[in-house]
Write a protein that binds this DNA or RNA. Structure first.
Length: 546
RNA sequence: GCCCCCGUAGCUCAGUGGACAGAGCGACUGCCUUCUAAGCAGUGGGUCGCAGGUUCGAAUCCUGCCGGGGGCGCCA
């Protein structure tokens, strides 16, 4: 027997059914009763606010309703519940029995690799566009945040039954590519870079490579194309090093050459949302909530960056008619959100087809000092050097640890430490420690893991650990729906902490008592699976030895 | 001026209506003949930016203000 299980939701279902009984009808409107871990152990294992929510509906006092709910729940849960207390303004505090803990542990163990997978997944298709850094230079450390985030969201959704597609969009057209080509040409001739050119040393390296390939400095356009090829191949290598692989690389130039920009323009014209003014072609984006209308074709006739982006979104929407688009943008692009949403609507697609997350900035901190970041000046920490410095696992963990709308201060001194101070190693260490126990058990011919096969008491540390693991499906669902992988980081750390406490209190191999060793080995196995799964969702390795 | 994000412990941050507000780091104190001390336990530390409002209940929702960051091009 295996498959997704969700013990907390099962318990919640029991509460809801009792509430519906008492109310004499289904729960529409009103709130859904909570079922949560109370702040203090003295408040039991789980608590619910059901009686407080019911009070205004039934027009009776919360404590009175709580009494009735408690007796109904006791009946429904029978030997799974030890006792129910009524506290505070009308909370029902549930104290679960050893039988429930044993049953839950057995259920979790039976889930195998499906442990933590929410039984009711999210479904659908999400096309995630992320990183999409310009192909005029190597990826910066900040791109590592986008890469880690987009990939982790994709992994989370895949785990919940959603098809995730990863795309990278290259703005390989226009003025910046010209400046890039001119910068390479200047370096070939040994000259200083032109105004607004790219000053980084990598441009010198590219120039040297292209000279070696026999290229001349007289065709900046050709140089920019050749330079782009080198840059993009480097970007792919860097992302691979982080464990991020894209399904599709879209190119603005390719879209342009295929006539997609023109088609997008025709589409918008057909829908009646464009007009001419001062020689330029505009999108009436204000009609869809944007601050001002936006230029699609300049008065010279060249397309703007924005038109390319409109064409790209149209292309995505048509390639995957079932998909929701998800754009991961940097904080410096937030002004872009309303216009791109407007364009999607102007093309006749529903506004629920596009979702956008804004990533706040990344500061790399060393010795308490923030490193400067300027791509054009060539002063920045590259993602490649960051990965080389602290490794892909620490890079991902530190980038993912914070919610996307807060700035990340990546402390290199901390990230470099291979000690308990470093949260990555803390979690990985727990996984390695369990692996070591299981190795020892195998070597010493310990009992086969069996979560439910004993009648003794369950240790408080075991209870804590089982409860934590039982929360995983809800945690995964929440993180997936809210596109919030940082919750998984916090969850993984909490699970590791619970395991270390269990390790302190409970001997596993050679434990005294009938079936105790077998049940603890099973709990170790379930914990290891939990850590492996959560680390996997973050794209971080789960080592067997450290 | 307008728009977006943030303001919670010394530092970095969790916590999008529930019970006396949490974690990691830093500081201080203990614990390795015992399954990995990359670990555990304990101590100290906060007017949740300020002021109103909604609610039985607000760090959380609403309004105003203060402080920090980012953005407001026929650049990308």
């Amino acid at each position: 027997m295996s498959g997704p299980v969700d013990p907390v939701t099962e318990l919640r279902a029991a509460v809801i059914s009792c509430v519906e009984d008492l109310r004499g009808g289904s729960l529409e409107g009103g709130g859904v009763p909570s079922l949560e871990r109370p702040p203090k152990a003295e408040f039991g294992d789980y608590s619910t606010n059901a009686a407080m929510l019911l009070a205004p509906v039934l027009d009776r006092s919360p404590r009175e309703i709580a009494e009735e709910l408690a007796s109904k729940l006791s009946e429904t849960l029978s030997d799974r519940i030890e006792r129910i207390e009524i506290a505070g303004p009308g909370f029902l505090n549930l104290f679960m029995s050893d039988a429930w803990y044993r049953g839950t542990a057995a259920e979790l163990a039976a889930a195998g690799e499906d442990l933590g997978r929410p039984p009711q997944g999210v479904g659908g298709t999400l096309l995630i566009e992320f990183v999409s850094a310009n192909p005029t230079g190597p990826l910066t450390a900040a791109a590592g945040r986008h890469a880690s985030y987009g990939d982790a969201v994709a992994r989370l959704l895949e785990f919940t039954g959603t098809r995730a597609i990863r795309e990278y969009y290259m703005n390989d057209m226009g003025a910046q590519m010209e400046r890039f080509g001119l910068s390479i040409a200047a370096r070939m001739k040994g000259e200083g870079v032109p105004e607004d050119g790219y000053e980084g040393d990598y441009v010198v390296e590219i120039a040297e490579r292209l000279v070696a390939d026999g290229m001349g400095a007289d065709d900046p356009n050709a140089l920019s194309l050749a330079g782009e090829e080198i840059i993009v191949s480097g970007i792919k290598d860097t992302l691979s090093g982080l464990g991020v692989e894209f399904d599709h690389w879209s190119s603005e130039r390719a879209l342009h050459d295929a006539g997609s920009l023109q088609r997008a323009l025709d589409d918008l014209a057909e829908h009646g949302h464009i007009y001419e003014k001062e020689g330029a072609t505009w999108l009436r984006s204000t009609e869809f909530g944007d601050d001002k209308d936006r230029v699609l074709l300049r008065s010279g006739g060249e397309p703007t960056y924005f038109l390319g982006d409109v064409a790209y979104h149209r292309d995505k929407l048509e390639r995957y008619p079932e998909a929701t688009l998800f754009d991961v943008l940097g904080a410096d692009h937030h002004g872009y959100v309303s216009r791109i949403k407007a364009s999607v609507e102007a093309l006749g697609f529903g506004d629920d087809r596009l979702e956008i997350s804004i990533m706040q900035l990344v500061n790399v901190v060393e010795g308490g000092e923030k490193a400067q970041m300027s791509k054009r000046k060539g002063e920045f920490v590259t993602l490649e050097s960051l990965i080389e410095d602290i490794g892909p696992d620490a890079t991902r963990f530190f980038m993912l640890q914070r919610s996307n709308d807060t700035t990340v201060d990546l402390d290199l001194d901390l990230a470099r430490q291979t000690s308990s101070d470093n949260p990555v190693y803390y979690v990985q260490y727990a996984h390695a420690r369990i692996s070591s126990i299981l190795r020892k058990a195998a070597a010493e011919g310990a009992a086969a893991p069996d979560a439910g096969g004993f009648e003794g008491g369950v240790d408080p540390s075991e209870r804590q650990l089982i409860k934590r693991i039982a929360e995983l499906p809800a945690e995964v669902l929440e993180a997936a729906e809210r596109r919030a992988p940082h919750r998984i980081c916090a969850y993984a750390m909490a699970t590791a902490a619970d395991f270390h406490a269990f390790y302190r209190d409970c001997q596993v191999v050679g434990a005294e008592g009938d079936g105790v060793e077998a049940s603890r080995l099973a709990l170790c196995g379930v914990t290891r699976q939990t850590l492996a799964t959560t680390l996997g969702l973050l794209g971080i390795s789960a080592p067997e030895r450290m």
